[in-house]
Simulated scan of single mutants.
Amino acid sequence: MSTLAAPAMPTSRTEPTPRERGSRHLAFFATLALALVCLAWELWLAPTGRGTLALKALPLLLPLAGLWRYRMYTYRWVSLMIWLYVTEGLVRGTSERGIGMALAWIEVMLSVAIFVACAAQIRMRLAHARQSADHPSQES
């Protein structure tokens, strides 16, 4: 017998702070936007070869549920995985011309935004956990 569990909150509080919600929204929507940019880039806007590079968008779809549900593990691994996209964007941004170069720099900007949002989420939640451990009687 299984019941649907409510999404895990970022901390032991019942509601996430506005900053936690903001970093979650940035991470989620920037990841979704990067997946769409990767698909459009490789399938329609500036395809390379037969479009098989569009498969690079698939790993970006995997963390979306975890990002939305405040899964700390997801934020941690996305903050590491996203550097592959930064690297690809930097290489292609400095080697391609035209729309391919513009799309590569968009990839870099979205990837850095994802990293910053994930890092912010992790830092806020770890700071709250430290504060809760130091002052357990002040927890509401």
Score class of each variant (00 low, 15 high):
Leu84Asn: 13
Val86Ile: 15
Leu45Asn: 02
Trp41Arg: 12
Pro63Arg: 01
Ser95Cys: 00
Ala35Asp: 13
Phe29Arg: 08
Arg21Gln: 09
Ala27Leu: 02
Thr31Phe: 02
Tyr75Lys: 06
Leu64Ala: 07
Arg69Phe: 08
Thr94Met: 10
Gly93Pro: 12
Arg76Ala: 14
Ala40Lys: 01
Arg21Tyr: 04
Leu32Asp: 04
Pro59Gly: 08
Arg71Ala: 12
Arg71Gly: 03
Gly51Tyr: 08
Leu55Ile: 04
Leu58Lys: 09
Lys56Arg: 09
Thr31Arg: 04
Glu15Lys: 15
Arg71Tyr: 04
Tyr75Trp: 11
Arg69Lys: 12
Tyr73Glu: 12
Leu32Val: 10
Trp68Val: 01
Leu80Pro: 00
Ile99Leu: 11
Thr17Gly: 00
Ala30Val: 05
Arg19Gln: 13
Glu42Trp: 08
Ala46Asn: 11
Gly49Gln: 00
Leu62His: 02
Arg97Trp: 03
Arg71Glu: 13
Leu62Pro: 04
Pro16Ala: 14
Pro18Gly: 10
Ala57Glu: 04
Tyr70Val: 00
Glu96Leu: 12
Trp77Gly: 03
Arg13Pro: 00
Leu26Asp: 05
Gly51Thr: 11
Glu107Leu: 06
Pro63Met: 07
Glu107Pro: 00
Met72Lys: 12
Ala27Lys: 01
Ala102Cys: 01
Thr87Val: 12
Gly98Val: 08
Ala33His: 05
Pro16Asp: 00
Arg71Gln: 13
Thr17Ser: 07
Ala46Thr: 13
Leu39Pro: 00
Gly89Thr: 09
Thr87Tyr: 08
Trp41Tyr: 15
Tyr70Lys: 00
Leu67Val: 05
Glu107Cys: 14
Ile106Ala: 14
Arg97Val: 14
Gly93Lys: 08
Leu103Pro: 03
Trp68Thr: 01
Thr17Arg: 04
Trp44Arg: 10
Met72Val: 15
Ala65Trp: 15
Ile106Asp: 06
Pro59His: 11
His25Leu: 09
Pro63Trp: 03
Pro18Ile: 12
Pro18Phe: 06
Gly98Thr: 06
Lys56Asn: 15
Gly98Trp: 01
